[in-house]
Design a protein around this nucleic acid. Structure first.
Lengths: 226, 226
DNA sequence: AATCAATATTATCAAATTGTTAACTAGCCC
DNA sequence: GGGCTAGTTAACAATTTGATAATATTGATT
């Protein structure tokens, strides 16, 4: 998991917010906090977290309302929602899960348990994205289904050939691709283009991304290394 | 969900086995039972269930051992494991999740809760089973049942094809749809229309909504991004 | 250090792709 | 029928992308 996982916690009790943040940060997550339902929705929209932990009982909008809002917005389709409550009450539990919550944790919260559960949720979720067409390396992400390249969260627009070339190399970091391989993979076997064409595209990728993620292996070919 | 979801329950207490089975069957699952750890492993191999509910305290092999066995076998990569225990004990909880359990439920078990949680787990796992008829993204809402599009609460009237095209793209924000995909999804496979037709409709949508929610990926297709 | 081949860079032009407009057609309702 | 709307298409403009050639630079080898 390259890019840090973003977690938003919403609870009106400042001390709980603090203790949970502390443990989540220590566990390597990037943490945002909200002290009521409205702020939770606002920050969810701003930061697009991967997981949102919601207290049921909160001012402005309660956890159920926030959960319902999130689940009605396709933007949050892949966002995990964990509901938190002081009540050990079966009705809330079922209601929360039916509204689309992914997990339910009862207070008092053990930080260790919380982190274990969140980790377990992500473990389950990650492979479910299937044979991922997304390549992640450091802070560089290359998503084939979206034709999208981001570096440190910033989006870079690559042209079709540039993208396909980068994707090919990045799919097997470190491996050197011969010019012939690149030609047949990116251009196809029936198309005939000169060697300089590859260079030019490599150059454009390097220029656009501003990082040297492609290494030249003189006399052989190119490889992705980042 | 075409084929019934198969669930294996392992517990040494016959009455618990019975009551859980009863409720799971009622909820539409196909249920297998085992009364100890060895039998659980045996039946897991035989029936390849989608979900295995394991009591921690069982004869022959306990829940942890079975969990560890299952997780070491790639055959069960996609199998959900739910651990069950009478102890409300944090250590077991964490140990179970770390061994690769997907969820942890403490006794006494409420059948309703159990079923909610299992359903929630499967909901997450199933790739977009939720064929939502209403798409919401930011302040844009697209309602298939009413063929209605609203932006910031204001209603916009899209023609049939325009609506269907927008709906298709918006159903999977970010994903690039190839022109061919768009044609077969919106127009069908037997209808033959030119490529310009898509452009014109895209243009009309952009003009009507006044926002640029559809991005062109040159040489590839279009995607919804808002 | 000189040489040579491979690669990088730049500019330029050609080709592909999409955007835009307007015109045409078919169906529908009054 | 006449007027309306939606859908399609054609023609052209605008834009983006791709390929090449010419030139500069690099790096290995001697």
């Amino acid at each position: 998991m390259e890019a840090p996982i973003k977690i938003l916690i919403a609870d009106d009790e400042a001390d709980i917010l603090e203790i949970i943040s502390f443990h989540l940060i220590k566990a390597g997550f990037e943490v945002f906090t909200a002290k009521d339902g409205s702020e939770a929705i606002e920050k969810a929209n701003t930061y697009a977290p991967d997981c949102i932990i919601l207290d049921i009982m909160m001012p402005k909008r309660n956890g159920f309302e926030v959960c319902e809002y999130l689940r009605s917005n396709s933007k949050f389709d892949k966002t995990l929602i964990v509901l938190l409550t002081a009540l050990n009450d079966e009705t809330s539990h079922i209601k929360g899960l039916e509204l689309g919550g992914d997990d339910f944790i009862t207070k008092p919260i053990s930080p260790k348990v919380l982190i274990s559960r969140i980790t377990a949720l992500f473990r389950r979720l990650q492979p479910s994205t299937g044979q991922n067409k997304i390549i992640n390396s450091n802070d560089l992400s290359i998503d084939l289904t979206q034709y999208k390249t981001t570096l440190k969260g910033v989006n870079y627009v690559l042209a079709k050939k540039e993208f396909e070339l980068l994707y090919l190399l990045a799919a097997q970091p470190g491996r050197v691709f011969l010019r012939g391989e690149i030609l047949s993979q990116v251009w196809g076997n029936d198309v005939i283009v000169g060697d300089r064409t590859i260079d030019v595209h490599i150059r454009k990728i390097r220029a656009k991304l501003g990082i040297d993620c492609i290494t030249t292996v003189k006399g052989v070919g190119y490889k992705f290394d980042y």
